[in-house]
Simulated assay, not measured.
Amino acid sequence: MITALVIGIGTGNPDHLTGEAIGALNRADLFLVADKGPAKQDLALLRTEICRRFIDDDHYAIVEVPDPERGPDAERGNSEYRAGVERWHAERARRYAAAIADSVGDHGTVGFLVLGDPALYDSTIKIVRSIEAHTDLDVELEVVPGISSLALLAARHKITLNRVGYPVHVTTGRRLVEEYRPELGDVAVMLDGSLHCADLLADHPDLVIYWGAQLGLEDEVLISGRLTDVIDRIRAARTAARDRRGWVMDIYLLRPGVAAKSARPGAEVTP
């Protein structure tokens, strides 16, 4: 029997690991880490540093598994995008299954370290569940929650995600423009490399944005204000963050017609 631990590790700051996550780290014999190439090597190094810092001894091993090509997501329609992601997930599961069989055989505890929280726009739970389909291994899944980028965004800007009596809608950049309407309330947007929020300005000029990139890391950036006033600064800050690391992770909250009043000391703010 393989026990698979899917462990949320927060957004990159080791101080955000929970006690439950640290306990789970110390149970694992093997950690599988996706190797996404040189541009994202520091994400693999972050996971290695978390293991070194929180695991009490050296009984564990870390194996980097080359990540399959995902494909040109931005150029695909919704059905092609979903099919491409399904193929990517299946190939990841096959590679993880092979790495488990090679490293621990049919008995052991395998950890998967997930940035943020495994329940929010992350595929690890689904992929781990499908490992059994690609091997003779029996896999028992356990999930440990982590601090999400959504929770950290709200904390950094010192806001709540919802206003009194209003809902919160969580979506992706791919779906934002077709879904958006003010009745959704506050809208949290993830996975938006193209900043599709700018496409809403013609019909919704009073939108306010709370944006953050590299949350939890030393080069964290925050900008808030009327979207029409700060969108160019956000684009520039996003490009600069990518240039520094080779990748960028960002998230934002859109709020209709409410002035952005505060953010943490040192943040960039446009009232």
Rank of each mutant, 00 (worst) to 15 (best):
A83P: 00
T171I: 07
D138W: 03
H59D: 06
H204L: 00
L184N: 00
H16N: 09
T109E: 04
D243T: 14
G185P: 03
V248C: 14
T48G: 04
G108L: 06
L161M: 06
R87L: 14
V110K: 00
D229R: 13
I209F: 11
V65M: 05
S148W: 05
A34P: 11
M1K: 00
V63F: 06
E218F: 01
S123M: 11
A44S: 15
L227F: 00
R70H: 11
P271T: 09
A99T: 02
L45G: 11
C51R: 02
G71A: 08
A83W: 02
E80K: 12
I22A: 10
G185E: 11
E64N: 08
L120H: 09
E140V: 01
A39N: 13
G111S: 12
L153N: 02
D73T: 07
E64A: 06
R94I: 13
W88N: 09
P167S: 14
G8L: 08
H169S: 10
L254W: 00
V221R: 15
P256T: 01
L32V: 05
A133Q: 15
E132H: 00
Y96R: 07
R27D: 08
T228R: 10
S262W: 14
D232V: 12
L254G: 01
I7E: 02
R76W: 14
E20A: 11
Y81H: 15
T3A: 03
L227M: 12
G84R: 10
R226F: 08
S149L: 01
D232M: 02
W88M: 08
A34T: 09
V170W: 00
E20V: 10
M190N: 03
G225P: 13
P167G: 13
I231E: 15
A198L: 04
A74Y: 12
T124N: 13
R47F: 06
R27V: 01
F54N: 04
R129A: 05
T239A: 15
P265M: 08
I147D: 01
A83Q: 14
A241L: 11
I50T: 02
T239M: 13
D42F: 15
V33N: 10
G8N: 12
D106S: 14
N78D: 13
T228E: 08
R238Y: 03
Y96N: 04
R226M: 08
R238S: 14
A61E: 12
I50M: 15
H89D: 06
E49M: 12
A98Y: 03
T3P: 01
G12H: 07
A99N: 02
R181E: 13
R27K: 11
R264S: 09
I62M: 04
E49S: 15
E179N: 03
E91L: 11
A263G: 13
V164H: 04
V65N: 01
G111Q: 09
A263W: 07
P38V: 09
R245V: 07
V143H: 05
K40M: 12
M1H: 05
D250I: 06
A61H: 14
K40P: 00
N13L: 07
G84L: 10
G185Y: 03
E80A: 15
L113R: 05
A90F: 05
A236V: 04
H16L: 14
F31G: 02
V164F: 09
T109C: 12
L161A: 04
N26G: 07
V168H: 01
P265W: 00
A213K: 01
D232T: 07
G71H: 11
R244Y: 11
I55D: 03
